[in-house]
Write a protein that binds this DNA or RNA. Structure first.
Length: 373
RNA sequence: GCGGGUGUCGCCAAGUGGUUAAGGCCCCGGAUUGUGGUUCCGGUAUUCAUGGGUUCGAUCCCCAUCACCCGCC
């Protein structure tokens, strides 16, 4: 038994002028055309959207967070409902986070030991402990197609010693994750750490590559660092990961980030930006981000983006959506979420097609020109 | 008609005889990257109903006018 019984990654076409590639990733719940953007559904729902609406954005795979499901829903309850797929009645590929990042970013009073992480639920003060073994058990109960290693994400900025310690722990924890997890129908992705130090990133990438995984992730970016630093780390790390396996850049990103990531050889992305921005009134366009509440849209009867063919753009105007937003109608967030998610997924789809067509460099350069005005 | 009260940004609303008049809402900008669900951060009154007066100085004291509110005829 091995992951290859359930997972397969086929590279359809590689760019000759960059590390970009177009692929087809097969999972137990379906195939994913890469590169792909994956919407985030923290609490087993993409905020503001029904499953039908999620699928209408073109989503091929979504995320859920172990940390939130563990604290709020109860992972045994989800397991008894048939795992996330049955619980949500969503029968496409799903990926779960390990809970590691949330413990570091959300939990209070956390204490990190070699064994695992002790932390308090910030909502009710209850005490919890998650270790690599427990994270694997949680994620096995949730039953996602892809599960993530339990890692320690160093903050930005951080000194070398701190990054070194976090990486050492992440390496040991990765071994424990693989010793624990034996369900080959759930692909365990290792995560590269090493903060913003080239040698640590290289060491980490080489370390994770020794594991026979179905895919590999780059973590520890998008934690507040400047874009140039994130690009640099992605650029030097991605090529060090196995060529014939999908590479997942965690927590990224903006439309420009996706273009750059794909150029560096990334195949999968996830980010809260499209849905969080939607709730806060910002939407993507091919000319850069715009804010729906701005007065300039008061009498603008055109779609959010002229080139977009999402549900919101096919049916509604900026003036209408602005009105919904200003009057605090939840439908505003729904329409903007649909648009933003569709926008990023469509962006990855168009870039994929350009890779297959052999004109990725030219096409992505044109897009960048528009985004950066 | 008589007595009492109130008049500070579009709306609520602090405030003091003395440098640049709180705050909230609205409005106008901006932020947001492995999600604590309408969040966070900025900006907007040379002006305190109007006209006089007292004072070195008044939104705050005095007078008049106007508007509104509450009683009584």
């Amino acid at each position: 038994m091995s992951y290859s019984d359930y997972f397969n990654f086929e590279i359809i076409k590689s760019s000759s002028q960059s590390n970009a590639r177009a692929g087809l990733f097969t999972t137990p719940h379906g195939q994913i055309e890469t590169p792909i953007f994956m919407p985030v559904g923290t609490n087993s729902a993409v905020k503001m959207l029904t499953n039908d609406q999620i699928l209408a954005t073109g989503a091929q795979i979504i995320l859920a967070n172990s940390y939130h499901m563990y604290l709020r829903a109860g992972t045994k309850r989800v397991k008894s409902a048939g795992g996330l797929h049955g619980w949500m009645n969503f029968h496409k590929p799903i990926l779960t986070d390990s809970g590691g990042f949330q413990v570091f970013s959300l939990a209070k009073l956390r204490k990190i030991t070699q064994d695992g992480v002790y932390f308090q639920d910030p909502k009710n003060g209850s005490k919890h402990f998650i270790s690599p073994e427990i994270s694997m058990e949680i994620q096995e109960d949730l039953g996602a197609d892809i599960i993530m290693a339990f890692d320690e994400c160093a903050p930005y900025p951080c000194d070398y010693k701190q990054a070194r310690n976090a990486l050492d722990k992440t390496k040991k924890w990765l071994e424990r994750c693989f010793e624990t997890h034996k369900n080959y129908n759930q692909a365990l992705f290792p995560i590269v750490q090493g903060a913003f130090f080239d040698d640590l990133r290289k060491e980490s990438a080489e370390f994770v590559s020794r594991f026979d995984a179905a895919g590999y992730a780059i973590g520890g970016v998008s934690v507040g660092e400047p874009t140039e630093i994130k690009n640099h780390i992605t650029e030097i790390t991605a090529p060090l990961l196995p060529f014939n396996k999908p590479r997942y850049l965690m927590g990224v990103g903006t439309p420009v980030d996706l273009i750059n990531g794909i150029k560096y050889g990334i195949d999968m992305f996830d980010c809260v930006l499209p849905t969080r921005n939607a709730r806060h009134g910002t939407f993507f366009t091919y000319q850069g981000n715009k804010i729906i509440k701005n007065k300039q849209f008061e009498d603008d009867f055109t779609p959010l983006d002229e080139k977009c063919n999402c549900y919101a753009c096919r049916n509604h105007t900026k003036a209408y959506i602005r009105h919904l937003y200003k009057t605090q109608e939840a439908t505003a967030a729904t329409l903007l979420s649909i648009h933003n998610i569709h926008f990023l997924i469509n962006l990855t789809k168009d870039l994929r097609n350009s890779i297959i067509a052999g004109n990725f460099e030219q096409y992505s350069a044109e897009l960048l020109k528009g985004f950066e005005g």
